[in-house]
């Protein structure tokens, strides 16, 4: 087997996994703490990408777009939480799914109105728009390594935040027993807004990262990946950041490797022609099959929440 292709695909899978983790981390925090199913998380992904790309285009600097766009995504997230989602915490999951579905429709159209039907293009700075030669003659685009690096940094930061800081302690307290934490004097409402905004900022970061690979932010770009992010948090066990990380990497790898190697695997068992027809279909379904299988054996995901 061609090992250069294998390593490249592994890196691609890792990078997809990291993106999914950035999205899933916010999603799983919001779900774990507020018990809120937020389909509109994908909208923050899109809005973050549009805002950052626009700022980058105006200032001419990718990094300024990154540094200014993410706090803006935080702001949008907090505003949405305060204006609408706050009233949904006490509702059942059906209400939450429907209302956040409504928000998706709103945001997709809003972006269409503000930025027009064509997307916003983003130009990478020269130092990111190159390739790096790894040992063994493997050439990888710098941006992919950049994404992996940023993602791992964020993961480490999140781990530190949740496990080592006072705010993390409050988050964990809120997750395990919201009423009790409130009774002990934690300002739960502010904590929720903060966590929600943070999730939106992470989603926005993921949106910018994805845009820097596809080179264009497009309307509805969040609607497909949000479903994959939900697969991630369901596999990982809702509410668990560690679970989200593991599941995101696994889903990213399975999806990417499935698309590139499934046909070769199938060719062992069935005729070449059938394999080439069937493989892409099965590859697209692979992560959903995996999710169904995992839920069948462990109905609460790989790392089920201990309390609740």
């Amino acid at each position: 087997m061609d090992y250069i292709l294998l390593v490249t695909q592994l890196l691609n899978g890792l990078q997809l996994g990291i993106l999914l983790f950035l999205l899933a981390a916010g999603l799983t925090l919001v779900f774990g703490i507020m018990d809120l199913v937020n389909l509109a998380h994908g909208s923050f992904y899109m809005i973050g990408a549009f805002l950052s790309a626009t700022i980058a285009a105006i200032t001419g600097s990718f990094m300024v777009g990154l540094v200014l766009g993410i706090p803006l995504a935080f702001l949008v997230g907090s505003l949405v939480e305060i204006s609408t989602l706050r009233t949904l915490y006490a509702r059942n999951h059906l209400d939450q799914v429907l209302a956040t579905f409504g928000l998706i429709l709103f945001f997709d159209t809003l972006v269409h109105l503000v930025w027009g039907p064509v997307g916003v293009a983003i130009t990478l700075p020269d130092y990111l728009d190159t390739s790096i030669r790894l040992p063994g003659d493997i050439i990888v685009p710098t941006i992919r390594l950049f994404i992996i690096g940023v993602g791992l940094l964020v993961a480490a930061f999140l781990y530190f935040l949740v496990a080592r800081t006072r705010m993390g302690m409050l988050i964990r307290a809120g997750a395990s027993n919201r009423t009790m934490a409130g009774a002990l004097g934690v300002d739960i409402q502010r904590l929720f807004t903060l966590v929600f905004g943070m999730g939106a900022a992470l989603a926005g970061l993921a949106g910018l990262m994805a845009t820097s690979i596809t080179t264009e932010a497009t309307i509805g770009m969040g609607n497909d990946i949000i479903i994959q992010a939900f697969v991630v948090i369901v596999i990982g066990g809702i509410g668990s950041i560690r679970g989200a990380f593991v599941a995101a990497i696994v889903v990213g790898l399975v999806d990417t490797l499935g698309r590139s190697y499934l046909d070769q695997l199938f060719k062992i068992f069935i005729s070449d022609q059938n394999a080439e027809t069937a493989a892409p279909a099965v590859a697209a379904m692979l992560i959903y099959i995996m999710m169904a299988a995992i839920l069948f054996f462990s109905p609460q995901g790989l790392f089920p929440p201990k309390t609740r």
């Binding site: 892409p280 279909a281 959903y288 839920l295 109905p299």
Partner: peptide, 28 residues
């Protein structure tokens, strides 16, 4: 498979099965 799960897991797993059909039809 789905009815073994509860709550949001049920929502998500039914969604996953529909997505599988979606990709199956796309690949036809």
């Amino acid at each position: 498979i789905s009815l073994k799960t509860k709550g949001v897991y049920f929502i998500m797993i039914t969604l996953a099965f529909a997505q599988m059909m979606y990709f199956a039809f796309i690949s036809l």
